[in-house]
């Protein structure tokens, strides 16, 4: 169950990018999701992400993310109208509550809650996509040059994590067969039972850490300056995606400066489509953002493109 969320190499086109490319691309998506308040833009981002998730065969994983997202979205939609007074279209006048003041529910606040929820879904999807597209080991490799020891510790901890979970399950079984019922008794007693489990695992793990350290020492760890092993390739697909991401970012910022893509909720909401500019910028930005998907399509259906990227 745990491995479900962890990156799986499925040999897909979208997984073949240089980790730096993917990181930059996802960063652009993240920044855009935080920059834009416009519902249309956020919806388009969600659509783009859905396509990408589909391209990485991660619909099942995405569903899990969406479920969490929808619950959080609900919370936002309830909290937001309760605390925000800036809306002009009051649809329900509530009583005065200490600390919070008068509870006036405005249409704008509900709407903003909805858009915040949408943004949350987009952000969650970006990270879901990260799990699907980037091999964490390779992403770590990017940072190894700057922070080698941290990267190494993260790698080692990630590698030990499944072992730890496995050990935990095994030790739990062993204790259950020795007569410990973890699910019974009052809380205090249960904690005591878990204490045994915890002790075994902690002690065994720390003993293991000395063995690992020895193996590292035998392979000359800490004997001097380390270098970093890297076998990433920058292919044309990476340059194109990198270019696309940067251009999209540039276009978005330029658009916002021109007033296209911005959206005001208070005191009264803007129109959904304020002018032609909004749509034009939308199309431009998303054309650039769709580059990896277009490349993926070309890779799949066109031999010529496949050989060139």
């Amino acid at each position: 169950m745990l491995e479900k969320l962890y990156y799986q190499d499925k040999g897909l086109f979208l997984q073949s990018f240089h980790p730096a490319t993917v990181l930059l691309y996802l960063l652009v998506l993240l920044v855009l999701s935080l920059l834009y308040d416009h519902p249309l833009y956020l919806l388009c981002l969600l659509f783009l992400l859905a396509c990408l998730v589909k391209g990485t065969e991660g619909m099942a994983v995405w569903e899990g993310f969406l479920k969490i997202g929808l619950i959080m979205m609900l919370v936002l939609m309830v909290v937001n109208p309760l605390v925000i007074r800036s809306g002009a279209t009051i649809i329900w006048q509530g009583p005065v509550v200490p600390l919070l003041g008068r509870l006036d529910i405005s249409l704008e606040a509900i709407y903003f809650g909805l858009v915040s929820g949408l943004r949350l879904l987009v952000i969650l999807s970006i990270f879901c996509l990260y799990n699907l597209m980037v091999n964490p080991d390779q992403a770590l490799n990017l940072f190894a040059r700057a922070a080698g020891k941290s990267a190494l510790m993260v790698a080692l901890a990630t590698r030990m994590f499944p072992t730890m979970v496995r050990d935990l399950k095994r030790i739990k079984e062993v204790m259950e067969l020795r007569g410990v019922d973890f699910e019974q008794g009052p809380l205090g007693q249960r904690v005591k039972k878990y204490a045994g489990l915890y002790n075994v695992l902690l002690f065994s793990s720390l003993e293991g850490s000395l063995e690992i350290a020895e193996s590292m020492q035998a392979r000359a760890y800490g004997s001097g300056r380390r270098t970093v092993y890297s076998r990433h390739l920058l292919r044309p697909r990476d340059y194109m995606t990198l270019g696309g991401s940067l251009l999209a970012m540039f276009a978005a910022v330029w658009g916002l400066a021109q007033g296209c893509g911005g959206f005001n909720f208070y005191p009264v909401m803007d129109d959904l489509i304020a002018g032609r500019g909004t749509l034009v910028v939308l199309v431009i930005v998303f054309c650039y953002l769709f580059v990896p998907l277009m490349l993926g399509g070309g890779y799949k259906y066109c031999r010529y493109i496949k050989s060139k990227i």
């Binding site: 091999n135 080991d137 390779q138 004997s223």
Partner: peptide, 24 residues
């Protein structure tokens, strides 16, 4: 179980080489 440091097979093979400071 207690000798492997890296998450990926290739990275593990390279671990000692990195420690020796070899070129890529």
């Amino acid at each position: 179980e207690k000798q492997i440091v890296q998450t990926q097979v290739e990275a593990e093979i390279a671990f000692g080489l990195e420690n020796l400071g070899l070129t890529n």
